[in-house]
Computed example of a mutant assay.
Amino acid sequence: MSDAAAVLDDVCDEGDELDLLVAGLTEARWALPTPAPGWSIAHQIAHLAWTDRVALLAVTDAGEFAGEVEKALAAPDTFVDEGAAAGARLPAPELLAQWRAGRDRLVRALRAAPPGARFPWYGPPMSTASMATGRLMETWAHGQDIADTLGVRREPTARLRHVARIGVRARDFAFSVRGLAAPDEEFRVELTAPGGELWEYGPADAVQRVSGPALDFCLLVTQRAHRDDLAVRAEGTDAEQWLDIAQAFAGPPGAGRAPKGEA
């Protein structure tokens, strides 16, 4: 099994898990506000459906996707919210069906992509595995907002390794998007996986180090929880700074979440 095929299997599992969480909700519960300001549960699913749609264009029709990029450049601060709001206005059954169909079409298109394929995106072009990993990360992160809204504790799975990997690889981006110079040296990142094993990134003798539970690191880099509420630790000035600004997602810096004591 190729790396891309394995990631796509995990994408399907992540989507199915979130589907079970929202499938039985009433219209009233779809309208519940989530921790993302201005976004209901419907907005969260609508955003996932919108992103699956534009990802499918990137995979199958680069010309049409270029039009989506132009729309984003024309309204960089609002295009994501506008896409979510448009979908959130749909009746819940229609939105759910749209999300299901869209994620299925995207997975099938990615499975059919030729080896070595690369697709345009809002940042650098993406490989099949990278595109799939990005979709898994977003599904997990927005699913966390929904779970928090419903008061559901999700069991962390080994699928978090994809989210953690994006978070580590996006280190330099987190600095650059804030106009900061990224550190020259690699960091050591050691994360305790849900199964108890250690996920390791970077040289073992690095001076700058980050450690903690993989779940907490993923909540940090997706900005679903404040650093003060997580057991992620840094050694070194640069590593400390990174944990304050880390983000695994493309686009401008997010506002993040307030510490629980201030929420």
Rank of each mutant, 00 (worst) to 15 (best):
G102P: 11
F249N: 00
A132T: 05
L21C: 12
A239N: 06
T26D: 13
L57E: 06
E185M: 02
F65L: 05
Y122Q: 02
H43C: 11
P124V: 07
A193Q: 12
I41A: 09
T133P: 00
L191M: 11
E14H: 01
A258S: 11
G254K: 08
D104E: 15
P76Y: 06
G196E: 08
L150G: 11
D13R: 14
W30S: 01
L243K: 11
A97V: 04
D81I: 03
A225E: 15
P183T: 04
W140Y: 08
G67Y: 05
A206R: 11
R178A: 10
A74N: 06
R53Y: 04
D61C: 08
R108N: 08
D77S: 14
A129C: 06
E70S: 13
V221Y: 05
D9G: 08
Q223S: 10
D244R: 15
E94Y: 01
S40Q: 06
P213H: 13
E27K: 00
D52R: 12
L21A: 09
V69Q: 12
G212Y: 14
L150Q: 08
D228L: 11
A225K: 11
A66T: 07
G212V: 08
L191F: 12
D148C: 03
G195A: 15
E262N: 09
Q208N: 13
V232S: 01
D10R: 08
R108H: 12
R100W: 02
W121H: 14
W199F: 12
A158E: 13
K260E: 15
A112S: 12
D19C: 03
P33R: 00
L18G: 09
C218Y: 12
Y201Q: 13
V107D: 10
V207Y: 05
P35Q: 09
E82Q: 15
R100C: 05
H162M: 09
G251P: 04
